[in-house]
């Protein structure tokens, strides 16, 4: 392990943890893991549960694959990785079904779809296969947190405008409704999730100019 030569939280390691939150955010920059990101963000609560599940699966699977990295024959690595991920996801699924049944009903097939969430496979391929367990763990946690961050923002916006609540509590005051305020039902429907993410990307790139794509893209 690398601790002999560098401290556990050296600046290089912290960078692994911090970078995915903004400069290389998995959703808005690397374009990984969009699939499950959008469908479950109607409300804040499932978004947070989903984010935590992904943090768990990514952290553990990165460590496992990184430990096995010299043992896995390259030709069958995809199946090995999928098996590692799928076993962890089964754990998460059974755990949610046991302790948070309501949320697990809402998430339905999307818990299973963590398996094919490209962000996990992508990071395993790009990082864990060629790095030591501790940096891989940080990379996994960092990327999952970057993913979770976007999820929580989208979930927050959609729940606030779509149902006027946050985490199930009424936020928009009653007088506003009697004065003619109406919840925007469009935010509950799938297309608005895409538009919300589009706007997040817009804001992020406006503030962080180096992420802007060339015209010919």
């Amino acid at each position: 392990m690398s601790q002999d030569r560098e401290p556990l939280f050296s600046s290089k390691n912290m960078k692994l943890l911090r970078e995915p939150l903004d400069d290389s955010n998995p959703i808005t920059v690397q374009v990984l893991g969009i699939c499950s990101a959008l469908a479950i963000t109607v409300k804040l609560e499932p978004s947070v549960v989903m984010a935590l599940s992904v943090v768990f699966v990514m952290g553990v699977s990165n460590v496992v694959v990184s430990l096995l990295r010299t043992k896995i024959p390259p030709r069958i690595r995809i199946i090995v990785q999928l098996t590692v991920i799928a076993s962890l996801v089964i754990l998460v699924d059974e755990f949610l079904a046991a302790f948070a049944y309501e949320v697990s009903k809402q998430l339905s097939v999307f818990v299973g779809l963590i398996i094919t969430n490209c962000i996990i496979m992508g990071r395993l391929e790009a990082f864990a296969l060629s790095n030591k367990p501790w940096p891989s763990f940080l990379d996994g946690i960092g990327n999952a947190a970057g993913y979770g961050l976007i999820l929580v923002i989208v979930g927050f916006v959609r729940e606030l405008f779509g149902s006027g609540t946050i985490w199930g509590y009424q936020v928009v005051p009653e007088p506003a409704y009697s004065a003619g305020y109406v919840d925007n039902g469009l935010f509950i429907l799938p297309p608005m999730a895409l538009v919300t993410v589009g706007i997040i990307i817009w804001v992020q790139r406006y503030r962080n100019r180096k992420l802007i794509e060339e015209q010919q893209s």
């Binding site: 429907l189 297309p191 538009v195 589009g198 706007i199 990307i201 817009w202 790139r205 406006y206 802007i212």
Partner: peptide, 21 residues
Amino acid sequence: APLRGLGITFIITGLMGIAFM
């Protein structure tokens, strides 16, 4: 400029989704 590439693709997909609704 900040919307180029990925951003605009997301928004277009959203609009196509509204049409499909």
